[in-house]
Structures are given as structure tokens and as C-alpha cells.
Write a protein that binds this DNA or RNA. Sequence first.
DNA 1: CAACCTCATGTCAGTTCCTGTCATCACTTA
DNA 2: TAAGTGATGACAGGAACTGACATGAGGTTG
Lengths: 191, 191
Amino acid sequence: MGRWQPGTRARLHTAAVRLFTEHGYEETTAADIAEAAGVTERTFFRHFPDKREVLFDGQDRLIEAVARGVKEAPADAAPLDVAVSGVVAAVEFFDEERRPYARMRQLLVDAHPALQERERNKLAQLADVVHRGLLDRGVTDPAATLAAESAVVVFRSTIAQWLREDEQRPFDDIARETLASLRAVAGVPVG
Amino acid sequence: MGRWQPGTRARLHTAAVRLFTEHGYEETTAADIAEAAGVTERTFFRHFPDKREVLFDGQDRLIEAVARGVKEAPADAAPLDVAVSGVVAAVEFFDEERRPYARMRQLLVDAHPALQERERNKLAQLADVVHRGLLDRGVTDPAATLAAESAVVVFRSTIAQWLREDEQRPFDDIARETLASLRAVAGVPVG
DNA sequence: CAACCTCATGTCAGTTCCTGTCATCACTTA
DNA sequence: TAAGTGATGACAGGAACTGACATGAGGTTG
């Protein structure tokens, strides 16, 4: 039947965000989204493995950015610095057209446990990428895992702070500040 | 109808673990578990909010143990030490009848993304408890969050290492070792 | 140009997860 | 003994997915 429509996936994504914010996440069915995008429910699930995933479309590019950031970190940097360099590279992701979008999305996610769960999942993927990057750099494994996961902790805290300050200050400034805080918290206040 | 049966919840839990390991997680339906426990599917969902949750029954006691651990940490300890004291208090949880059980459960969880998602959720609750405990102790908020989440990182890594060593060494020994590793990774000069 | 191939989509049937609602029965308390 | 409580059964139903098969558009090859 239907002739081919360009950007079906993108249309599903934007329709989903709109319907979710207008009527709520649980109140919006996958069929509703599909209809709003002019396709069938079945097509929705061909593009996204489940309903939640539609909100996380495009995160692959963030993952890639982070991987690149880790790879391009200075060779003599400490593991945690390398890891955080990775997530700081996510600036390029948040500095595009996505700004106003990011806050709206975050509101949605924060309001629904099911979506928070999925978000943590994505952050775990981020940790995995950083982890692999560190292994490639020769960092051995207990340390690599710890550094990668700590970097994600810094990442989360940085985003939260960035949004709290209404995206005024540069993302990477806050990231470096957060990293310093983590070091302070970790205990030893040495210069 | 039915006369009251003691321990319905526990019976559902053990039946679930058995069926999951025998036939797989996705292959086992909630109705199967209910039937094996001698109740209705509806009753299953009265005891557990969803199918995954049945595998995490009893985690409340772990949460409580961690909260207690944070509360009882020495007054002059650094935030991260307090936080880790909390998760180290989870020893009492892993030192009971649960040892052989823990490994089997972990195999199940590791094999199914949906269950990993839920596990991360539980760990987030752990972080919340530690976070609240730190706030009660007067630690201010950016630091409290960072310490709490770092403690969870230590916790995860510790469990993994503990299982890797076949539960030979004491849990809290490994935890302290992991904490030292984290400090080294963070580039904090050890005191 | 026709036969062919690929690929996104539509259609339909079916399963599983999960929920609301009401009835029932054992046990408890007044 | 009457009323209340609490766990359960029975049933209906919605929403999230999945598998199988058909269709039609566009590009490729002879």
C-alpha cells in the first residue's frame, strides 16, 4: 500500500514527545503515536523495540561522541580524567538544537520511574563505552571499570547542575567543577 | 474460597526462581509462577507490582541494613567513607542463607537486559538511602550525591569481585580494597 | 521494457503483562 | 452472633508487544 515516507522514525519521535507532554506518558498509547505520525502501531514497533525507547532516539550519536572524547584525551592523563574527558565531549551533543528539547525531555523522564529505569540503562551503555576506551588505552580492569562508572556519576551530576543553572554556564566548565568536587568528596584534600 | 496460606509471597518467590532457572525468564509466565505456588495470576500481581520484582523480593532488608550502616559510621569520617560504610554493612545481608542463592540470581539477572535494568533501579534506591543518610549527617548536597553514587559504584565492583573470588574473602575486606582502588583511580594521593 | 529484488509498511491474529471490580471465605473483634 | 478485616478467586479488559504473510514502491538487471 502506502508509498514510502521519508523520516518515519523521526516523525514518530517528535509525535511521541508532543503527545507525551500534552497528555502524559501512560495516557499515550503506542497506537496513538503511530497514528499521529501517519503509520501503524506495527510500524512503530519496527522502529523502536519498545515504547520507552522512542524517547531515547538519537542517543547513539551521544555514545559515539563520548567514545571519540575518550580516544582523543591526552595520553598522559589519569584514568578518571580520561573518562571524564569522554563525557565532557558530550557537550557537542547538548550544544546543538537540542537545548530547549533537553529540559522538556528531562521533565518527562523524571516524572516516570519506567523512563528513569531506561535512562539508567543508557548511562550504563555510556559507562561501557568509556570502559572499553580505557581498556584500549591500556588501563587494567578493576581500575577501568571504576573510572568509567565514576565518570558517569560525574556526568549525571553535571547535567543536573547544568539544567539547574538554566544552561547558562558552559557544560564542560561545570563538568570540571564536578570532577573537583568528586575528588574532594573522595576524601583527601591535597593540592 | 481458599483458606489462608502462610508465606504466599515467599512461595511465589521461590517458585519463580526455580522456574526461571529451569525454563528461562521469558519462557516463564506470571501465570506459571502463580500456578506453581498454588495461587492465581491475580494474586501474584497483588504481591509484586510486576513480573521482574519477584526476583528482588527481600531487598528491603538490604536497604535497611545500608541505612543503618550509614547512621552508625564514625562521626569524623569523610563523606565517601561514610557512604561506603553503609554499603559495607550489606555484609550481614550476604552472610546469611543467601550465598548459594546470590550467584544463581546473579546469573539470571546478567542474562536478561530487562532484569539488569531493574537491578540498576534497586541500586539507585540504595544510592538514595545513602544520600539521605549523608544529608542527615550534615553533608551538603552536591557532595552528598556524589559520595552516595560513588559508594554504589564501589558496591557493584565489590560484589563482582567477591563473586569472582568465589566468596572466599570477607566482603568488607574487598570493599575497602575497592575503595582504595577508586581513590587511586581518581588520582587522590593516599594519606 | 519486463522480470526481479529489496525494503518499508499494512493487516491480522495471538500472547503476555497488568488492572479494576466484585464476590467469597477464614479469621478477628465487639 | 454480628460486623469488620484481609487475603484470595473469578472475570473482564486494555495496552504492550510478536510472528506470519501480503502489498506496493523503487531500484536493478537482463
